[in-house]
Design a binder for these strands. Sequence first.
DNA 1: AAAATGGTTCAACAATTCTTGTATTATTGA
DNA 2: TCAATAATACAAGAATTGTTGAACCATTTT
Lengths: 126, 126
Amino acid sequence: MNHPEAESRAAAQADPQAESRALAALGALAHAQRLRLFRALVVAGLDGLTPGVLAERLEIARNTLSFHLKELAHAGLVTIEQQGRNLVYRADFARMNELLGYLSEHCCQGGVCEIGPGSCVTGSSC
Amino acid sequence: MNHPEAESRAAAQADPQAESRALAALGALAHAQRLRLFRALVVAGLDGLTPGVLAERLEIARNTLSFHLKELAHAGLVTIEQQGRNLVYRADFARMNELLGYLSEHCCQGGVCEIGPGSCVTGSSC
DNA sequence: AAAATGGTTCAACAATTCTTGTATTATTGA
DNA sequence: TCAATAATACAAGAATTGTTGAACCATTTT
C-alpha cells in the first residue's frame, strides 16, 4: 500500500462500472459531429460555450445539436450550467481523463512494452 | 526543431486523416463485445489469439465474432496472420497509441491544466 | 479423395441511431 | 402582458449497425 499510483490503478480496475462508463464515452465520441463538438468545448476550456454559439460555429441545426449535446452529457463528458436564458456547456476533463486512464491500462497490459520503449503514450509502466 | 515531442505532436495534428482514424477506432471500441475482444487480444500480447479460442472464451457465435473482428481490423486496431488453417489476431498497439495520443492532445488543450496538476493522464504538457 | 476442422461470407431480419420538422418551455425586454 | 430569444422535447422517417442461419472456402487428417 505504499505506491499511490498502483493503488489508484487497482481501484480504477476494481470499479465494476468503469467499463460501462468507458463504453458510454467511446460511443459518445465515435461520431464526427460530437467529436468536433467536444473538441470545441475542450478548446473553449473553463469558459464553456452556449448551444447557440456552437450551432453557428459548427453549422449544425439547433435541434440536432441539442440531441448530440445531450448524448455527450449523458456519457458524462460535458457539464451544463444555466446562465440566464443561456446554457453553458463545458467539457468534463475529469471524465475524459478517466477514459484515457481506462484505455491506457488496456493498452499497456500484457505486451506493448515488449514492442519497444516509448510506444505507450503514458510511459507509466513501460 | 529541437523538441522532438512537440514535433511529433505537430505532425500528428497536421495529419489530415488523424481525425478519421480516431473516429474509426472510437467506433470500433464503442461496443461491449468488441471492447472485450480487444482487451483479450491486448492481454494475449504478441502471441495473439485465434477466432476459435476467442469464440469459446467470450461465448460469441463464430459468425458474429468474425463480423466484429473484421470491424476491429477495418479500424486498424488488430492485425491478422494466417498460420496453417488458423488465423492469429493481434492487437495493434501502435494504432491504439495513436488513438491515445489523439485523445490526449484534445484533452490537454486549452484548459485542463488550469483545473489541477495531475489531472491529465499523460502529464506531458501540463 | 473424403471427412473434419477453422473460419469467413452472404442475405434477411432486428435493433439502434440519426435527422428533421414542429411544438413546447423558460427567460428577457419593451 | 406581449413579443422575442434560447434552447429542448417529441414523433416519424431514414440510415446505419448488429445478429442469425445457411452456405461456402481453405487446410489438415485419415
